[in-house]
């Protein structure tokens, strides 16, 4: 059965870059959470950039995953920045108030620059 969500992680200095592709729902949330947590615990990560450019669908299960990782990033003294968010996902972020705690910028380069990564 085809996976409805794929993702990759890339380490850029102390920033973990997460790129999500596809659909993020309850079915996909647990695996993403586990994989993401293992990167947060690798000792190299302080900040996180999440690229949502290719996330075509998300429901409140996704909000739970982002909120959970936001708390973990805060615990290690870092920041979480979202980039390339599309209109549909943006609506859910607005509705849930997540933009009050997580900054959104236009693209990956802007997000990395915000967190002090030299490109």
């Amino acid at each position: 059965m085809a996976l409805s969500l794929t993702y990759d992680f890339e380490q850029k200095q102390d920033v973990l870059l997460v790129r999500l592709t596809g659909e993020l729902d309850h079915h996909e949330a647990e695996q993403l959470k586990n994989d993401w947590q293992s990167y947060l615990q690798n000792g190299m990560t302080k900040h996180v950039v999440v690229n949502l450019e290719n996330l075509y669908f998300m429901d409140s299960s996704g909000l739970g995953v982002f909120l959970g990782r936001y708390k973990e990033v805060k615990e290690i003294g870092g920041e979480m920045v979202i980039c390339s968010i599309n209109y549909d996902v943006q609506r859910l972020f607005e509705l849930s108030g997540l933009f009050k705690i997580i900054d959104a910028v236009e693209n990956e380069a802007a997000a990395l620059a915000r967190l002090g990564v030299a490109l």
Binding site: A29, K33, D59, S60, S61, L63, G64, V65, L67, G68, L92, L95, S96
Partner: peptide, 14 residues
């Protein structure tokens, strides 16, 4: 404990 956002019904209403 399941990392639910608690936003499901709010989204349905909206």
């Amino acid at each position: 404990e399941l990392e639910r956002s608690g936003m499901g019904f709010t989204i349905m209403e909206n």
